[in-house]
Design a protein around this nucleic acid. Structure first.
Lengths: 192, 192
DNA sequence: AAACTTGTGGAACAATCGTTCAGGTATCTG
DNA sequence: CAGATACCTGAACGATTGTTCCACAAGTTT
């Protein structure tokens, strides 16, 4: 009854191509925004025939949804690593990168984020990093932690529409404030 | 040399219709998102002929830009009133309304917000409320104020993708924390 | 090897898009 | 009241869209 051993070679390639299409869709969103996503543009980006996206995804919406789910998962890993590290400087550094060299990716993630605002079935995926962060951090002060998470989102969004992306050095004091609760230079170890 | 007294009646009606088109575009964005904005859909919403939007705005982009500028101005007034009021409860109440009964409008504003991330010429308009807030508040602790403004954005965005919109009572302690800097029940007057 | 299942891709469809343009209508001037 | 001017719009064009369809290739099973 071993059924996961000998998979159908056709389905295996199919899954691979399916994932390639999702990745291509994410690249298109990074470059041109959600508005630029069409079956044809994604197909061109992925190097597959025009009808391939239609074959793998019943509708264009379904492709967008799959892209959000995939992107949300990747985002979760990134953010949790950052938040778990705990150091204000590391967090600031990651934020600076998100609105700097990874600007396109961050922009894409927030566009998909807002898409969840109009598709209730996407909300769980979009909120997953929030839920996970709360679960993992087990913060002593839940209110302060909620404020911290909100500010992370806000700093990223505001960083995306700034003339010049904020630097790590500009962000560090703000992150510090959010972690410590006040502008107090004394560092505090937070290991449980 | 009085030139604003007797305006051309034709031009006056034109301006009125122009504004009606922008307002209709905002309503379409509230309802269907930026993706739903086409010359035809806006014209239908505004009750004007199909080609009217093209007549008043050289391109569809220009219509979106005009909508963002108009929406940003309205947002500025709202937010500044809120921030200036200072009371944590009032701020929390306004935030709850923004993600509650005014959900559609808030969603539209953030979609236009992100649009500015891809159109550099829109950035000043999108950031205007931030600049104004900093200018008006003249905060004693700029770092804490920056964190506060970021958290406002974050709370709104996160409120938009929550299963059920957060209530005023849930938001109040978070806002309080951000204003006071720590979970300290003692109120502090902040008049210069 | 034959039969069957699954993946693949080019052509073509109706629908809708942004935009153009020539003619019509309202308003102002003399 | 005529002429001029500016605003306005319905019809239409080419381009692009999502999607369907069908013939064919690749792989699996009997």
């Amino acid at each position: 009854m071993v059924e996961s051993q000998k998979v159908d070679g056709r389905k295996a390639r199919g899954e691979k191509k399916r994932r390639a299409i999702v990745e291509a869709a994410l690249r298109v969103i990074e470059r041109e925004g959600i508005a630029g996503v069409t079956h044809r543009s994604v197909a061109r980006e992925a190097g597959v025939p025009t009808t391939a996206p239609t074959y793998y995804f019943a509708t264009l919406d379904e492709l967008l949804i799959a892209t959000l789910l995939w992107s949300a998962e990747a985002l979760c890993d990134d953010i949790l690593k950052i938040v778990a590290s705990g150091s204000a400087r590391e967090i600031a550094s990651s934020l600076a990168k998100a609105v700097g060299c990874n600007r396109g990716r961050t922009l894409a993630e927030y566009e998909l984020y807002l898409l969840a605002g109009r598709r209730p079935e996407l909300k769980p995926a979009a909120r997953r990093w929030l839920d996970l962060a709360v679960e993992l951090a087990q913060p002593a002060d839940p209110v302060a932690f909620r404020a911290f998470l909100a500010a992370i989102d806000g700093l990223l969004v505001q960083g995306l529409i700034a003339d010049v992306a904020p630097t790590e050095d500009e962000l560090e004091p703000i992150v510090s404030f959010l972690i410590r609760g006040r502008d107090d230079p004394a560092p505090r170890a937070e290991e449980e």
